[in-house]
Design a protein around this nucleic acid. Structure first.
Length: 197
DNA sequence: GCCAACGTTGGC
DNA sequence: GCCAACGTTGGC
């Protein structure tokens, strides 16, 4: 029996809780959370929905502001060309809005040094930066918005009958803002586009 | 707006 | 290195 499992940052993982980050599995798909509705933090509006990504030059944006070690480590393992879901969080109807592609692998997140940025980190330094980001590009909208409540229902179902969404990180690590997605999870969720109720 | 879940901090 | 207190996330 190994001693306490550890996360990449050294913090302890409760051994009773299944945790996606302690897995040695390699992931090739991702889920990125962003808030599509206005919310001010230190006077800065954090609103950034899929529509906002589409309006960026090249429909590309840097994924700055991630201040969680697990999420950062997942960004560090992202590779060029990999796909991710663009998830709308903290809004009226949370859920998956579209697909993005990783177009630049992890590099230093400059916002950690900017005192005026809501995600400024006084403990980080240019010499020893703590936080990274990647660039993502809009790929496409899903044919229909896949709401969280639908995924939740499927997740509960699949836990009982061992379906593809039984271990989806969206529910097993609900608070992570950057999550890994398995191939079978990705394919299944994309296939929901064509499901009519 | 509430609050459960859970990550982080800091005293000891 | 433990763990209580605190802060944040994000669904509801």
């Amino acid at each position: 029996m190994p001693p306490n499992k550890r996360k990449a940052n050294g913090a302890k993982v409760p051994s009773s809780v299944p945790n996606v980050a302690s897995s040695k599995e390699e992931f090739s798909f991702w889920l990125l959370k962003s808030e599509p509705e206005s919310r001010l933090e230190n006077g800065v509006d954090l609103k950034f929905g899929l529509e906002d990504l589409k309006k960026e030059p090249n429909q590309t944006a840097c994924w700055d502001g991630v201040r969680n070690y697990q999420a950062r480590n997942f960004m560090r393992s992202m590779r060029l060309g990999q796909k991710g879901f663009f998830y709308h969080s903290n809004c009226k109807v949370p859920g998956i809005a579209g697909l993005v592609k990783i177009v630049k692998e992890s590099y230093v997140d400059h916002t950690q040094f900017d005192k005026k940025d809501p995600h400024y980190d006084p403990k980080s330094s240019q010499d020893n930066p703590k936080w990274d980001m990647v660039d993502v590009q809009f790929q496409r909208e899903l044919k229909r918005f896949i709401p969280l409540h639908e995924l939740k229902q499927l997740h509960l179902d699949h836990k009982k009958n061992s379906g593809p969404l039984a271990k989806l990180a969206l529910f097993t690590s609900a608070r992570l803002s950057v999550q890994p997605v398995r191939q079978e999870e990705f394919d299944y969720i994309v296939s929901l586009e064509d499901v009519t109720s």
